[in-house]
Each structure stands twice: as structure tokens, then as C-alpha cells.
Measured scan of single mutants.
Amino acid sequence: GRPPQPKSVEDLLDRINLKEHMPTFLFNGYEDLDTFKLLEEEDLDELNIRDPEHRAVLLTAVELLQEYDSN
């Protein structure tokens, strides 16, 4: 089946190999997954995450988090 739900933002970023963005998220108040899963493209602009590939991966991760919630 699906991988288990990540336990933290750090756990999530670790899985998608984008842990380099951890300080950015923490500094901007994305300390838990409840906050993280509200992330949208405009937020990525504000966080200055410009890499299109990173953005795509992050937004996909957000969608997956929302799916875990609805099940």
C-alpha cells in the first residue's frame, strides 16, 4: 500500500529529499504538518522557493497529506 503518513515536516522533507528547505519552513511558521498542508504556490513565492522541480514536489506532497486526512 501507501507509505505511512509522515510524522513531521522534517520527516516529510526528508522523504522527498528537500531537507535543505527545512530552515525556511520552520522560520516561516511551518512547524507542523497541519500548517504545511495549507501550502500553496503563492506561499512558495513568498518563501522564495523558486526551483520549479522543488515546487512541484512540495505541492505534490501537500496533496498527498490532504489525501491522508480525507481517508
Rank of each mutant, 00 (worst) to 15 (best):
residue 1 G to N: 14
residue 1 G to S: 14
residue 1 G to F: 14
residue 2 R to N: 14
residue 3 P to F: 13
residue 3 P to L: 12
residue 4 P to N: 14
residue 4 P to Q: 14
residue 5 Q to W: 08
residue 5 Q to P: 10
residue 6 P to E: 07
residue 6 P to H: 05
residue 7 K to W: 01
residue 7 K to T: 14
residue 8 S to T: 10
residue 8 S to K: 03
residue 8 S to P: 03
residue 8 S to E: 00
residue 9 V to L: 13
residue 10 E to A: 11
residue 11 D to F: 01
residue 12 L to K: 00
residue 13 L to I: 00
residue 13 L to M: 04
residue 13 L to W: 00
residue 13 L to N: 03
residue 13 L to S: 01
residue 14 D to M: 09
residue 15 R to M: 14
residue 15 R to Q: 12
residue 16 I to E: 06
residue 17 N to D: 10
residue 17 N to K: 09
residue 17 N to H: 10
residue 17 N to M: 06
residue 17 N to F: 04
residue 17 N to Q: 09
residue 17 N to G: 14
residue 18 L to A: 03
residue 18 L to I: 04
residue 18 L to M: 14
residue 19 K to L: 14
residue 19 K to N: 10
residue 20 E to V: 10
residue 21 H to Y: 15
residue 21 H to C: 06
residue 22 M to F: 14
residue 23 P to L: 12
residue 23 P to W: 11
residue 24 T to N: 09
residue 24 T to F: 01
residue 24 T to A: 12
residue 24 T to H: 04
residue 24 T to E: 08
residue 25 F to Y: 01
residue 25 F to R: 01
residue 25 F to E: 05
residue 25 F to W: 01
residue 26 L to G: 04
residue 26 L to Y: 11
residue 26 L to I: 12
residue 29 G to Y: 01
residue 29 G to Q: 00
residue 29 G to P: 00
residue 29 G to L: 01
residue 30 Y to C: 04
residue 30 Y to F: 13
residue 31 E to M: 11
residue 31 E to Q: 13
residue 31 E to N: 14
residue 32 D to E: 10
residue 32 D to I: 06
residue 32 D to Q: 08
residue 33 L to A: 01
residue 34 D to H: 08
residue 34 D to R: 07
residue 35 T to I: 05
residue 36 F to C: 02
residue 37 K to M: 11
residue 39 L to C: 04
residue 40 E to H: 11
residue 40 E to K: 15
residue 41 E to G: 07
residue 41 E to M: 06
residue 41 E to F: 00
residue 42 E to L: 06
residue 42 E to Y: 06
residue 42 E to G: 13
residue 42 E to S: 14
residue 42 E to M: 07
residue 43 D to V: 08
residue 43 D to K: 11
residue 43 D to H: 10
residue 46 E to D: 03
residue 47 L to P: 03
residue 48 N to Y: 00
residue 48 N to W: 03
residue 48 N to V: 00
residue 50 R to N: 12
residue 51 D to M: 02
residue 51 D to W: 02
residue 52 P to T: 08
residue 53 E to K: 11
residue 53 E to P: 01
residue 53 E to W: 06
residue 54 H to C: 05
residue 54 H to N: 05
residue 54 H to L: 02
residue 55 R to E: 06
residue 55 R to P: 01
residue 55 R to S: 04
residue 55 R to T: 01
residue 56 A to L: 09
residue 57 V to Y: 06
residue 58 L to C: 02
residue 58 L to G: 05
residue 58 L to V: 06
residue 58 L to D: 09
residue 59 L to F: 03
residue 59 L to T: 06
residue 59 L to E: 05
residue 60 T to Q: 15
residue 60 T to Y: 08
residue 60 T to M: 08
residue 60 T to K: 15
residue 60 T to F: 05
residue 60 T to G: 14
residue 61 A to C: 07
residue 62 V to W: 03
residue 62 V to I: 11
residue 62 V to M: 05
residue 63 E to T: 10
residue 63 E to I: 01
residue 63 E to P: 04
residue 63 E to K: 15
residue 64 L to G: 15
residue 64 L to K: 15
residue 64 L to A: 15
residue 64 L to R: 15
residue 66 Q to A: 09
residue 67 E to M: 09
residue 67 E to I: 07
residue 67 E to N: 11
residue 68 Y to Q: 15
residue 68 Y to F: 11
residue 71 N to Y: 11
residue 71 N to R: 14
